[in-house]
Amino acid sequence: MEKISQIPASPMDFFLFPVWLHRRISIRLPGLLVAFLFVGCFDLLFYENLAEQSVFSGSPGRVFFRIVLFLILSFVVGAIDVIFTICPLADFLQMIGRRSEKYVHKRISVILMKSYAISHVLFIIPYAVALYSGVDWTQVGPVSAQQIRMLYAALATLMPILPFIQLGVLYRTISIRTRIQPFGKLILICAAYFWMQLSGSVVVFVEGLAYSLLLG
């Protein structure tokens, strides 16, 4: 078997992450808990501009309470996001594996949950620029500074394709960690696209509830 250190680099490593990273995704619980917290922090940080809402301002006691509450809500939201999004897809993947008699790890759900969490790294910089740069993107026009217009064009181009790159990350994890044939993987990714559209609406609703509690 080819060693991880000997796997040649690929242009897709930049977008879909290196093969060695997908192979090293473990099935251990502590890493999954970290994944829940990471995704939840991402969801709440980029739901609204927390700096504009002065969420973490005030007396030291108030700030400490808000930080603790933020972490608790992040974990809950992240767990709901990850589990609700990935578990049905993992079950579907296992069904495909049984039908095609191809190897699928019995803890593939944990592997995919962590892969899904890792895929959120792709969104951090674009979302941070869009939400926390201080630019009113609705006012960008021909009279705006060239740098702002170029940045706006880059975000407008990148944002719509990021969800598809995220699906590509999941596809690469499935390709590396299972023996499912390409047709089965394609069916799963198509199902994942439509399911994530539906689950995303539920996650946004949960984010709204958590955000209300955070501001309350």
Rank of each mutant, 00 (worst) to 15 (best):
L71I: 14
A210R: 01
A51W: 10
Q147H: 09
Y132L: 08
Q146W: 00
M1H: 12
P160T: 07
S59T: 15
L151F: 00
I174M: 14
A51R: 09
G58T: 05
S26T: 15
L151P: 02
Y171Q: 11
I27Y: 13
S119Q: 09
G200E: 04
I108N: 07
A156L: 10
D43V: 04
G58P: 02
G168R: 02
I72G: 10
G141N: 14
F70N: 00
M95T: 12
A79P: 05
E207Q: 15
F75M: 12
A117T: 10
I67M: 15
S10M: 11
K114T: 09
D81G: 05
R24Y: 14
V19P: 03
G58V: 01
S26P: 10
G58I: 05
I189N: 04
F84G: 07
L214I: 02
S59I: 07
Q147L: 13
K102H: 14
A35G: 06
I72F: 14
R179I: 06
L33T: 08
V202Y: 09
F92P: 01
V110L: 13
R107M: 11
G184C: 01
R99Q: 13
W137K: 04
Y47M: 06
I86T: 07
G200W: 07
R62C: 09
A156D: 00
R62F: 00
F17T: 01
I174R: 08
Y47T: 04
V68R: 03
V39M: 05
L167V: 04
Q166G: 12
R98I: 08
Y103H: 15
S175W: 13
R179E: 15
Y193H: 09
T157S: 10
I161H: 07
A156W: 07
R23M: 15
L151A: 09
G78D: 08
Y127P: 03
K102L: 15
A79I: 01
Q181V: 12
I27L: 13
A79V: 06
M159L: 15
L215W: 03
L32K: 02
H22I: 11
I25W: 11
Q53M: 14
L155F: 02
I86Y: 02
F205I: 04
H105V: 13
G97D: 12
F70D: 02
M113V: 10
Q147A: 11
V39I: 08
L122N: 03
K114H: 11
L37R: 08
I96N: 07
I187P: 00
W137T: 05
I125Q: 02
A90P: 08
S201D: 06
V203Q: 05
A79C: 12
L93P: 01
Q197I: 13
L131C: 05
A191H: 01
E52G: 10
P182S: 10
I86C: 05
I83H: 07
L186I: 12
I165C: 03
Q197N: 08
T138V: 01
L215R: 09
V19S: 11
V202D: 00
V104W: 10
I111D: 11
E207V: 05
A192C: 04
E2G: 03
V104G: 08
Y132M: 10
R66S: 14
L50D: 06
P18E: 12
I86G: 00
G58C: 07
P8T: 04
F205R: 06
A153S: 11
L16A: 08
A192W: 06
L50T: 03
L209K: 07
